[in-house]
Design a protein around this nucleic acid. Structure first.
Lengths: 143, 143
DNA sequence: TTTCCTGCAAAATGTTTGCAAGGCA
DNA sequence: TGCCTTGCAAACATTTTGCAGGAAA
């Protein structure tokens, strides 16, 4: 793993330690898989890349989400993919509905949504904004 | 069913006829369930209110979506709810993560998303924007 | 009477849970 | 040591598929 990824890994592990979570080989593998992928992965992809039990993957992405170092991205078909994020950051994505490649978008409507939701009497607000399309490669493959 | 709902029902059935889809008792029931509910329902709720087979529900919401008279709303937990829409309309929602009550939001970021996605080489673009929170009633219940 | 729709059963998918054993702190 | 984490099996929830019979046009 390149030096910069090693630093990222350490930063995340420290975050876990702060939260009194144990640093295990499995957890390093989950994080390593996501770091080296450089794109969001689904549970099965994490399992495969990290040589992990699928249950361990699910339990750990859940734990990481709680710890604020990971974000879930819902796909159009109801499944989800996972991505590492700095604590208190969150992103939106442009996702290919064919190959599920996903890239970050540089837009966020968080403040606006929060305002509207509060006006309607809602609290504990979160929002999901994902854009789905066909990436260039998949359009060509289909042609 | 009130007169206005009957008119809505007829409009939707006509849309199906235009698309050479058959108008069956089951289809009327699915639409009727959604019309009288006045809010998005999940597959099981449609089945129950319409006294339908669950498979029939799924096949028909799929068909209705194709016909452009229905929209899917993904929930945070990966399941989906369904809502009737006029052809070529679509809405975003404020959904309670506790009771799953959902109301329409008067915002749409469609044009902006389309632009960004095209700039990234994507086509056939769709987007999902849903805001989740706790509605007033559920906050009180939890307190 | 042709084609589409439906019901039932069964499978597929994605995810969660129970419990005993294992491993970090 | 004590508690958190893991692995395995099994359950679960939601959604999809196959196929034979039924119904709309």
């Amino acid at each position: 793993m390149p030096a910069t990824k090693t630093r990222d890994l350490e930063a995340i592990l420290n975050r876990l330690r702060e939260r009194k979570m144990r640093v295990t080989k499995n957890r390093e593998r989950v994080i390593g898989a996501l770091l080296t992928a450089e794109k969001p992965l689904n549970a099965e992809q994490i399992r495969e890349r990290g040589d992990l039990d699928l249950v361990t993957v699910y339990r750990n992405v859940e734990a990481f989400e709680q710890a604020g170092v990971l974000q879930r991205i819902p796909l159009e078909n109801g499944t989800q993919i996972f991505e590492l994020t700095a604590p208190d950051e969150h992103y939106h994505h442009l996702v290919c509905r064919e190959c599920h490649q996903a890239e970050r978008l540089d837009v966020c409507v968080g403040e606006e949504m929060r305002k509207v939701a509060k006006a309607n009497g809602y609290s504990h607000i979160a929002h999901v904004l994902e854009v789905y399309g066909l990436c260039r490669e998949c359009v060509e493959d289909n042609a």
